[in-house]
């Protein structure tokens, strides 16, 4: 936990913000890797596994972020989000469907009355290289079309150049444009180079008002990794201890198997605590993960190994 108590004016200037972020204790990189690797060896089986799979399904942000996305594809994804396995109505719906801003209206219409939220990436996703005015209008349009969650990207260029104040102000401005919609701040950890930077970016985003901090866009490799997620989970845990506000975490990109998903759940429970084992505070950004979760669920309930021929192609 950082020793520095946040003064109300940490963001008063770039200098004060820089002093605060660089005053955070450094991350023990080897320790973080070791701890994540050690927690990945936990064995979760039978009824615990069944529970974990259902929880993981409820945490999925079913995502399609391709240039080739069509309204038809978003509609079929919406149907899948509401009823992941048409043959088994006991499968819970996923948390949200995540699309580009221009397809929000289609997703909102398709998901009416299903309880599944619509999330939209905004702010010139994935690079974030646009003027602030464009980013804000991007956000306002998505919110006006009915998105209840906004996934924004931070300006990594400004962050790496040490212009923390610019990053902070942008998050505050986008949060304002969200007008009540949940704001997830994508740090794009694959471009932040060090775990120290991940910790700084996490604290920066949380102080600026993020409701969620998210690892990656999925367009940069490496995307989400367990050690990076561990560093971010420590940050939200400590931020809660400091301020009493719980911020969520969303690893995204590269999570493809049930085994990976369960490892993240173990990480959440052991690092942040059981309070975060809730779709309101932890999400998994994924597209192909859902089919594997469904296949593992079928294996548990029938005892027979499932095959992809019996599930949708997304």
């Amino acid at each position: 936990m950082p020793s520095t108590t946040p003064a109300p004016d940490i963001a008063a200037s770039n200098t004060s913000l820089r002093a605060y972020l660089h005053g955070l204790p450094g991350v023990d990189e080897v320790g973080a890797r070791e701890r994540a690797a050690q927690l990945a060896t936990r064995s979760v089986k039978t009824t615990a596994k069944a529970q974990a799979i259902d929880l993981a399904i409820r945490m999925v942000d079913l995502t399609t972020l391709e240039g080739a996305d069509t309204p038809g594809k978003v509609r079929s994804l919406a149907v899948k989000a509401a009823h992941p396995d048409p043959a088994d109505r006991s499968v819970p719906p996923v948390a949200a469907v995540c699309v580009y801003p221009d397809l929000v209206a289609v997703a909102v219409e398709a998901l009416a009355d299903t309880g599944v939220a619509v999330a939209s990436v905004a702010t010139a996703f994935p690079s974030g290289r646009s003027p602030l005015a464009a980013k804000l209008s991007d956000t306002r349009r998505a919110v006006a079309d009915g998105a209840s969650e906004i996934d924004m990207v931070i300006d990594r260029g400004a962050f790496l150049a040490g212009d923390y104040r610019a990053v902070f102000d942008q998050i505050v401005a986008v949060k304002d444009a969200c007008a009540g919609a949940h704001l997830k701040v994508i740090l794009e950890t694959g471009e932040l180079v060090t775990y120290d930077n991940v910790r700084r970016a996490s604290w920066l985003a949380m102080h600026a008002g993020a409701d969620f901090i998210k690892t990656s866009t999925g367009k940069v490799s490496p995307a989400a990794t367990p050690p990076v997620t561990l560093v971010m989970l420590e940050a939200v845990r400590d931020f809660h201890a400091l301020t009493g506000r719980r911020v969520g975490v969303k690893p995204a990109g590269g999570i493809r198997t049930t085994k990976d998903a369960i490892r993240y759940l173990v990480l959440v429970n052991e690092v942040a605590g059981a309070a975060w084992l809730d779709p309101a505070l932890f999400r998994l950004g994924a597209s192909s993960l859902l089919n594997d979760l469904l296949m593992q669920r079928a294996k548990l309930s029938t005892g027979v190994y499932a095959g992809p021929d019996y599930y949708t192609l997304d």
Binding site: V304, Y305, A306, G307, P308, D309, Y310
Partner: peptide, 9 residues
């Protein structure tokens, strides 16, 4: 039995 019932075989 595992192979005979496996849905991906």
């Amino acid at each position: 039995p595992t192979l005979a019932a496996h849905a991906d075989v």
